[in-house]
C-alpha cells in the first residue's frame, strides 16, 4: 500500500500502476457529475452530440456540493453513493474516463470495465464534506446549470485525499461482511 501524489487528468500509466489500498493525493482538474448529469451525458452520446467535457484521462467525482457561501469557491463537497452511477461508468471508461471518485460498492460490470480499460475507482470519506471542500481551489459550472447541485462542474483540486478501492487488476479494498461470525454464513 503506497502513497502517491498524482496529477489529474490521469495518465493511462498512472491509472494502471495503482493498487487497491494505495493512498492518492490528486492535484489538477477533475469534473463533478452525479445521477442527473450522467443521464444527460449518456443522452448526448446517444444523439452523437459533443460533450461539454474532455473525457480523455478524466476523473469524475460523484458529488453534489452544497452552495458556496460568499468568499468560498464551493460548499461542502464529499462523495455520494456510487452504485447509482454503475450503469453509466463502463461506457464512460470505454471513452477515456480513467477514474471515478465516490463511496460505496460497485457492481461487477464496473469492476470488469476497470480491468478492460485500465481504470480505477477511488473512495473518498463519505460525510467528510467540509474537509474535502478545503482541497477544492476553483469550481466552475460548465454544463447543465439548471440541475443545481447536480450540474456538471469543473474543479481544480489540490491534494484531494482518495483511496484506491478497485484497481485495474481486480483488487478490492472493501471488506466482505463476516456473516459466519454472526451465525448466518
Amino acid at each position: 500500500m503506497a502513497t502517491h501524489e498524482l496529477k489529474a487528468p490521469l495518465s493511462d500509466a498512472d491509472a494502471r500502476m495503482l493498487r487497491s489500498g494505495d493512498v492518492v493525493y490528486l492535484t489538477g482538474t477533475i469534473y463533478t457529475a452525479r445521477d442527473a448529469a450522467h443521464k444527460k451525458l449518456v443522452e448526448l452520446l446517444d444523439q452523437g452530440k459533443e460533450l461539454p467535457l474532455d473525457l480523455k484521462g478524466a476523473v469524475i467525482y460523484y458529488v453534489g456540493p452544497s452552495p458556496a457561501q460568499p468568499g468560498h469557491v464551493i460548499g461542502s463537497a464529499g462523495p455520494t453513493t456510487s452504485y447509482r452511477m454503475d450503469s453509466f461508468a463502463p461506457r464512460l471508461h470505454s471513452l477515456g474516463v480513467k477514474a471515478s471518485i465516490g463511496k460505496g460498492i460497485r457492481n461487477d460490470a464496473v469492476k470488469q470495465s476497470l480491468k478492460d480499460y485500465g481504470c480505477v475507482y477511488f473512495g473518498a470519506t463519505g460525510g467528510a464534506g467540509a474537509l474535502l471542500s478545503a482541497c477544492i481551489k476553483e469550481a466552475e459550472v460548465i454544463a447543465f446549470e439548471e440541475m443545481g447541485p447536480e450540474a456538471l462542474r469543473k474543479l481544480r483540486v489540490e491534494r484531494l485525499p482518495v483511496l484506491v478501492i478497485n484497481d485495474s487488476v481486480g483488487g478490492e479494498l472493501y471488506v466482505m461482511p463476516d456473516l459466519k461470525a454472526v451465525g448466518l454464513g
Binding site: G64, P65, S76, A77, G126, A128, G129, A130
Partner: peptide, 16 residues
C-alpha cells in the same frame, strides 16, 4: 477533523 471544520467554518458537515 471534519466535525471541527464544520463547527469553525461556514461549511456544513456533509454536502447532503
Amino acid at each position: 477533523e471534519n466535525i471541527d471544520l464544520a463547527e469553525k467554518t461556514a461549511l456544513p458537515l456533509c454536502q447532503d
